[in-house]
Amino acid sequence: MPSVNSTNTALMAEGTAGQAKIPCGVVVTRSCMALFATGFNAWSQLSLGRNPGYDEPDDLFSFTKVLEAQRIERPVAGLSWTLGALRRDGVVCMAGVGLGDVDDYEASHTFAEAANGEILGIQDDNIPVPGEEGGSEAQKVLAKYASRSAIRTENRQRSWRCESPVRTVAAFDAGFVILYQDGTVATLGDARFEDCLGRDITDDSPADEPGIVPDLANLGEPIKHVSAGGYALAALAESGGIYLWGMSPSGAQRRQQPFSTLCGVPNYVEVDDGKDVQDMALGDSHAIALTTDGSVYVIGDNSSGQIGLGKTAREQVQSWTEVSFDAPDGHEIVAVAAGPRSSFILTSPVQA
């Protein structure tokens, strides 16, 4: 995971270990994907497409192009940093504060970090083979660590064999949500936040062990994507329905979720009179969704521009609102993403 430091890192694209740093623009080709960002930018963490210089950066209140490259993966964002993976020659773009070395960048795409500092990710492990002295076989495991430094020292807290391959791990403030390749969803976290786990905590299904979310397992269709932010969690079903669960945060310092019906049961959330959703993401107090007709909808807090509706929309937006967004000529929107106080739109050339 990115190590903490106090230096504002100017944008560079870094290759694999031993390669020189090169400006991100070097990888731009005629058939480019494009990444657009909006939101909190106090550490120039959204300045993926340029060197932010020495001026105090401004928050972005509308979706602004920040990166172009031949191939861009879904960005990973913390409060003060953003990583944009350009899967071409192992290049990774980075901006903001709190970035470490190349290994840290790669870890950020395979690990998730909760607000309490705990980290969960997928790792290779050697499992002993019964009946074979000294024999072992490679096995994917879910590995949990108490902190970033514990990863570097390989001081693993717990691990669980992955009976089904893991597709996604996402973190909320007090735990994690896990999506398996077979479309089932599990949660892991703190028993004090049982509503965030979406399941009953029992001796047979403790909070600190991965446990299946039963209401999602009983939908009759697989889940294809999960996201989390603050104390809210979301699952996107194969048919395009969003299911939300969790709890409203306590304390005056916490930003309120726009979803007033959050509870321990995943409930269907309608977007614009029931449109099917292709992709979605949650921030600390906002959400973004891409519908199958190519429209982008947002909801929640816009105090830092994180839902991209302009500077005049600073209050909580309580209903899904369509974003006025024009993709580049010949492009279509293929994904959305969110950081704690930022949102992203990813576009790609339309396939012939």
Rank of each mutant, 00 (worst) to 15 (best):
T312N: 11
T261Q: 15
L99Q: 08
D200Q: 12
I307E: 01
A335P: 07
V185L: 07
T291A: 08
N155D: 14
E315M: 11
V28N: 06
E68I: 01
V271E: 05
M33P: 01
V76D: 01
A313H: 14
G246R: 01
E163V: 05
A207T: 05
V91P: 00
L346D: 09
D326S: 15
T312V: 05
P340E: 09
E194C: 05
H286Y: 08
A34H: 15
R255E: 14
D326C: 01
V102W: 14
E56N: 02
V296I: 13
D125Y: 15
S3Y: 10
V277R: 04
A337W: 08
G134C: 03
Y54M: 05
P75Q: 03
P266D: 00
E315S: 14
G53M: 08
S248Q: 15
E332G: 13
S342N: 12
D204W: 02
D204R: 03
Q181T: 07
D89Y: 13
C24R: 08
V27T: 14
E113K: 12
A186P: 00
D195N: 13
S80L: 07
E322D: 01
V336W: 09
A85Y: 12
A20Y: 07
D204Q: 10
R199L: 11
G198H: 02
G90T: 05
P165S: 09
L11F: 05
S285V: 12
V185Y: 00
R254N: 14
D273R: 00
S108K: 10
G96S: 02
T9N: 12
D279G: 01
E221D: 09
T7P: 00
A146L: 14
L216K: 00
Y231W: 10
A281C: 05
A174L: 04
V166R: 01
P2T: 04
L244V: 10
A252F: 10
P340L: 06
R50I: 09
L197T: 04
R192I: 00
E118Y: 15
M12E: 07
C263P: 00
Q306D: 02
G183E: 03
P206L: 08
L262W: 08
S248N: 10
V296Y: 07
M33K: 09
R148I: 08
T187Y: 03
Y297W: 13
L99F: 04
G300N: 12
